[in-house]
Amino acid sequence: MKSLKARSNQFSNPEYELEVLESTENEGQLFSDKLANVGLYPLKPTQIEILQINMGKMCNQVCKHCHVDAGPDRKEIMTREVMKACLQVIRQHLVKTVDLTGGAPEMNPDFRWFVEEIRKISPSIKIIVRCNLTIILANPKYHDLPEFYKKHRIEVVSSLPYFTAIKTDSQRGEGVFGKSIKALEMLNEIGYGMPDSGLILNLVYNPAGAFLPAAQSALEDQFKKKLWDLYQIQFNSLFAITNLPISRFLEYLVSSGNYEGYMEKLMEAFNPVAAQNVMCRTTISVGWDGYLYDCDFNQMLDLKVAAQNSQHISTWNQQALTGREIIVRQHCFGCTAGAGSSCGGATS
């Protein structure tokens, strides 16, 4: 399967996506009105604690729901120059967490250099890598990634939509489940996910279709039991994440006739507590080219931060960013539905 962009699909155009999201069929409720009703509009940051860095859209997988529209045919990749600007911000503004994502961040040729430089700044910075697992087995040059993660005390967060091959492969591609299990075994072998090792391995569940995720704690219990019983695999926590209606998932919703029903479901499940805790209040998302966004989803919709003169990592202005208004659109209902959703799972 090729990316939407390679297929010149209209859902690879952020303007078109926003047009669909703002379409009159959803006239009933505006996300901004919902926030206003609970005293949260305009939405403002609380404190910038997390820098989520998209190191490029290149990936060895082409997942059906990918909001980045990542894949082997995507060539956008972060340069060392942009990484240096990120390092300066991390150093100067005492960022607590650096969350590396993609695509497959490990496919960026400067990935290891970047991690080493971040670690040099401080041993206490939390470095997260959103590893798709199969990258570890994709090429011999990646086989030692688990050791590399361990050496730099990186927290590994990996998607595993289900504990069966049929569900996982239907979302992430043929053979992905088997390779993911092998990669999880390799991570467990060196201590990741094992009690008291201090090496954190978290998994991400997201629904393989037009429905909301189950309660995070119940799912975690189920995953822990099944992965242990079937494969003797251990992990720390499970994050349940809602699929946001953008990019490939939006294209799926519209083409399968599920769009209206899904949006209705998200709107009905609006949770003020989840709205209070949305991740964009503590996060800045950096695009592969250094532009700044309120979150990874706004990044894919090309909605740059509303901070004058601080829209690029090279012109970072902490005051302007902390005082900015977070840009919200209809897709934001995905982060406030039910128990809430963020890159760290449920928010309420």
């Binding site: 289900y162 069966t164 049929i166 569900k167 569940y205 629904p207 279709g209 429905f211 909301l212 995720p213 189950a214 309660a215 119940a218 799912l219 189920q222």
Partner: peptide, 12 residues
């Protein structure tokens, strides 16, 4: 059908 999917059940 919706509810069981949203409770984390699979088709099997």
């Amino acid at each position: 059908t919706v509810d069981t999917l949203e409770k984390g059940c699979d088709e099997e």
